[in-house]
Amino acid sequence: MTAAGVIRGCEALIDGVGRAVSWVSLGLVLVMAGNVLLRYGFSTGSVAMQELEWHLMSPIALLGMSYAIQHEGHVRVDVLYGRMSPGAKRVIDVISFLLVAIVAALLVKISIPYVMLAHRLNEGSPNPGGLPWRFLLKSFIPLGFALLFIQSVAAMARVIALPDTLPASATAAASARISSQGTPA
């Protein structure tokens, strides 16, 4: 496989996971609204369904991180950056992506023992009737940062090997940014 093929493969993986996980946000709307309406209309509801509300936030936030960055780019202050030469921007981009990859790898490393501990303690809800297996919920932390690592390495490789191009999935806003600034923002 060519370098470009590997880069595109990684990006497709991030995009696919992000699209799939997106539907959890619809699930969140329905679960929370359902809980409210069932309680109001029928004075009924379960502890597990109430806990599910905040359990759904974790996959949206953590598995969606790399997906968000791939599509919209990082949020940054462009006061000086916007006036830099394309070469200088590329240097900042490569260093940034490298550092994000390092930060992501660090977080994977320190969160694995945290998840293993939750597994060993058989951690569940302290509320009777609540949701069990909290280690599964916590495992989104290393998983999310592993995806971010892949996304950052792919983005760095793209800046180096395929300069001035964007992932197939990048949004119109990001394309507009590349045409006006010469590099993905």
């Binding site: 969140l28 936030m57 320190i110």
Partner: peptide
Amino acid sequence: FNLLPARVFGVVSNYTLIAIPLFVF
């Protein structure tokens, strides 16, 4: 920094922050 995962979990399991995806939706 070994406490970091606990803080991250605190953010993504924060009940009040659920309002973010709902209002954005």
